[in-house]
């Protein structure tokens, strides 16, 4: 089929990877520009947007989850947050942003992706902290540890496997969400798909789909290994069941 041939040609042409004008350029305001015709640049932009979003989400969700889990309150709230975020279409948030003061482009996409990256981290951190055996907590308090010490030196290490699982879910999901940026004038690998559809070059659409899928599977694989590495051996089976 010629579509597959076109995709192959696109993927094996060096210029598709490094772009006609190089990988990086400069915007009008002097900032770094990811050239939109280079696969390498789009991949880097994709990763930058994903990690910015997860970073923002983690910076807010981790402390909140640690605190709520430590005081063991707010389980209902975390459930509601994750349920509502599941029902809210990403496209709805992106288009709402575009029509509001937040506007189009990468910044709006990063904010939207951060909102969706938030619930898995919060829920898992909360569950991990609140699930620590009450006897363990009491033993720690009985030894004269302060609240902060119990939270950070007893509960947190025991919650690490679940927190890692939450970060993995959240990151994989974000890398999968960022392609939608192409619909609201943002960057990332979705641009290839969107451009291909707009110009009816289905070979490029297919190639873009392959690239996005490969990136997501690759990131998930890497994170699965990282998650395994930070999980103590006896806890490994339990986390697989929970994830």
């Amino acid at each position: 089929m010629s579509t597959i041939g076109d995709a192959w040609t696109y993927l094996t042409t060096p210029e598709s990877w490094v772009g006609a004008n190089g990988v990086f350029g400069t915007n009008f305001d002097g900032s770094l520009r990811f050239q939109q015709d280079s696969i390498i640049a789009l991949t880097l932009e994709h990763l930058y947007m994903s990690f910015a979003a997860v970073g923002i989400a983690a910076a807010l969700a981790l402390p909140l989850g640690l605190w709520l889990g430590h005081v063991r309150r707010g389980g209902g709230v975390t459930t509601v947050v994750s349920n509502v975020s599941r029902a809210m279409p990403t496209l709805a948030l992106l288009t709402l942003f575009a029509a509001s003061a937040i506007g189009f482009g990468n910044r709006a996409v990063i904010i939207a992706a951060a909102i969706f990256a938030f619930p898995p981290i919060l829920t898992n951190t909360f569950t991990g902290m609140a699930g620590v055996d009450a006897d363990v907590r009491e033993a720690a308090f009985g030894q004269g540890m302060t609240r902060l010490q119990v939270a950070l030196r007893v509960e947190l290490p025991l919650a690490v496997p679940l927190i890692a699982a939450g970060l993995r879910t959240s990151t994989t999901q974000t890398v999968a969400t960022v392609p939608l940026a192409a619909l609201v004038a943002g960057g990332g690998l979705g641009v290839i798909i969107n451009f291909g559809l707009a110009t009816q070059r289905y070979g490029e659409v297919l190639a873009g789909g392959i690239l996005v899928a490969a990136l997501c599977l690759g990131i998930d694989w890497l994170l699965a290994r990282a998650q395994r590495a930070v999980t103590p051996a006896p806890l490994r089976r339990a986390t697989v069941a929970a994830a």
Binding site: A176, P179, I193, L217
Partner: peptide
Amino acid sequence: GVLYTVPSFALFALLAPF
């Protein structure tokens, strides 16, 4: 699991040509 990890946007792109 693999089907689930591939983003919908990419899956539609993979299917659309066919």
